[in-house]
Amino acid sequence: MNIFRFLGDLSHLASIFILLHKIQTTRSCRGISFRTQALYVVVFIARYLDLFFRYVSLYNSAMKLFFIASSCYILYLMKIRYRPTHDPSIDTFRVEYLLAPCLILALIFNYKFNFAEVLWSFSIWLEAVAILPQLFMLQRTGEAENITTHYLAALGAYRALYIPNWIYRYFTEGLVDPIAVTAGIVQTGLYLDFFYVYFTKVLQGQKFELPA
């Protein structure tokens, strides 16, 4: 475990606490894409099924359980508790256009052709693009609450921080994970436009607004 990896995980944890805080304090899931959140549940369950047959560390298992539980809880909040605050008419990204290509990528690119490894690869590709329904929604509304942008920034920073972690691991352990690295670069790339507006507007005290 190096500092980049650890900060990345902390950033991921922080993003979830920020999202929960946003939903609980505003008693609303306005501006949050249900489809993106549902994709994260698929991502975490697909990737962390190895909880049943592989033990890495207490840290690893605890984080996996937290990500599965919190993502399911967020779906519950959105679908049941604060259902009236969710507007499906602006959350329309077709997730099958993400699921199918990710499945194909996983069947082609994996480290071993077995169920668990294909599922792992699928989860890596799907995580890379799972934010698209959310970004699409943001693009449609053209603005976002500050707290929602902090959530997205923390979520984007998580995978961005994994990139120096992979560089570090290459030099210290000789470890290369081409699937995770490729998907991670794609994932971070999808945030670049968002980050630009976040740094030039939100962090300067302005409201997050996209140019019309």
Binding site: S57, N60, F67, I179
Partner: peptide, 10 residues
Amino acid sequence: SDSEAHHDEL
């Protein structure tokens, strides 16, 4: 790298 090595990441 062997196929197990990447599974220590989240």
